[in-house]
């Protein structure tokens, strides 16, 4: 048992993985024996080629998948074994920006952000104020009555971020948040995320954008074929 790893870990780590493996199909591993810690307030980038397991790692952290092996501690809870419904309270403390945004198409921009507060039971008045402030921060306040499908890709991306941040999560996970955006827009999005990180939250962003890695890469975790091959400060990466 990797007890010694637990003992060595920084006491304020928000996320810890011990020998975590994930296998969707018997015999093949999407992730293999990952050991990893993310401290409070840390801003880390997760990189690697397509199919390396970035999305899988993020999904494990917010409890959308369960590890096939190993232990996973998130915000002080061991979620390796928790059942489907008991991850809900944990998810309310984690903001997630999904690769495909996962916006609610039949709801307005305002409602899409508001739902993150609805699930927490925030009263209507407070909710309105917080949603409006958040939309203002991402520059969507004028679009608040629109539906997501009428927004541009960059606007949808900002909406997804607004929803992830509105309940001030302790941990933000973003899956390729600049995926299909042009470089200017990518920087704009990353500035939003970096600003949130500097407010003390822990942030993990999956990306394979080298420009972003050079610019924001304080700590870069590199996955290849499901294995964590590098964990260090970027800049040297081609």
């Amino acid at each position: 048992m990797p007890r010694d790893n637990v003992a060595r870990g920084a006491s304020d780590a928000l996320v810890r993985l011990f020998h975590v493996s994930k296998s969707y199909l018997a015999g093949s591993f999407a992730l293999r024996d990952i050991n990893l810690e993310l401290g409070r307030g840390e801003f880390a980038l997760l990189t690697g080629p397509s199919g390396a397991g970035k999305t899988t790692l993020l999904r494990l952290i917010f409890g959308a998948e369960r590890p096939s092996e190993g232990q996973l501690l998130v915000l002080g809870r061991n979620i390796s074994r928790v059942g489907g419904h008991s991850v809900a309270p944990l998810r309310r403390r984690i903001g997630v920006v999904f690769q495909d945004f996962k916006l609610l198409p039949r709801h307005t921009v305002e409602q899409n952000v508001g739902i993150a507060l609805d699930v927490m039971g925030v009263p209507a008045r407070e909710k309105r104020a917080r949603v409006f402030a958040m939309l203002k921060r991402v520059g969507l306040e004028a679009r608040r009555a629109h539906h997501p499908l009428s927004l541009s890709g960059g606007e949808q991306q900002r909406l997804a971020i607004a929803r992830a941040l509105v309940n001030r999560p302790q941990l933000l996970l973003a899956d390729e948040p600049t995926g299909n955006l042009d470089p200017d827009l990518s920087i704009e999005i990353m500035e939003l995320i970096a600003a949130f990180a500097s407010s003390g939250a822990t942030v993990l962003v999956a990306t394979h954008d080298h420009g972003l890695l050079r610019r924001y890469g304080r700590r870069v975790l590199r996955l290849e074929a499901g294995e964590l091959v590098d964990d260090g400060v970027s800049g040297a990466q081609p």
Partner: peptide, 10 residues
Amino acid sequence: EIVRLIGGSR
């Protein structure tokens, strides 16, 4: 499914 992913309880 989305509501569950962002922490909507049962």
